[in-house]
Amino acid sequence: MLSDADFLRYSRQLMLPLCGESGIQRLRQARVALVGLGGLGSLVAPYLAAAGVGTLRLFDHDSISLSNLPRQWLYQETDVQMPKVAVMARQLKTIHAGLKVDATAARVSADNIHHLLSDIDLIIDCSDNMATRQLLNRHAFIAEVPLVTGAAIGMQAQGMAFHSAHCGTEYNAGCYHCLYPITELAAGSCQTDGVLGPVVGMAGCYQATLALRILLQDPAMQWSQLWRFDLASGHQQIIQITQDTACPVCAGHTSAFS
């Protein structure tokens, strides 16, 4: 049951046919894991908290640095050198006091992923490296949990969502590894190539939207579609990520990746 305060608070979401009263209940019961609290995660987390998601499990091993502030503006100058998860948990509670936040200052790895990401309804990849992205993709596929991935560099933003239940040749849909079958990048990090705050923010907003649509069980959800946005030219493209029949993750092949 929603209270009068809930009806008031979520009135704009309730108006949407996608949401309604049952949607608010779904969000409240949802348990979401968010890996990485940089430019992407520091936007996605407050959007989900504000929208009424019940439980957020946050992971980041890093501390806030001065170079984070131009794009990770939920962190303040007085937070520099503080653990990101601790500051984010504190901030999220000011947005929504009823939110349950589990904050873990650790790097998600092959050794701990099954423990850290158990009993989760959705994984959101806001990490900053290819190895973690591949690890999360593999785990999400095996655990049959939907995955929302986003990334940004320079003036380029990307976002996409995957679900093992909607993956395969019958759906013409693959996984993250089908798109990028690599475990590291020679270049292409914010540290090496730079990024504008609003560009990574655009990718984060797209991820938050995908996440809410998944949690609200949007029947029009498009899985395995890459959204690319070049904010320098304004050019956007949607690409269907077809399954690579040689993919070691979703096509059942074993390879050096496993």
Partner: peptide
Amino acid sequence: FSLFSAVAGG
């Protein structure tokens, strides 16, 4: 064809 590079920044 469209050709584009992987992006991993976050």
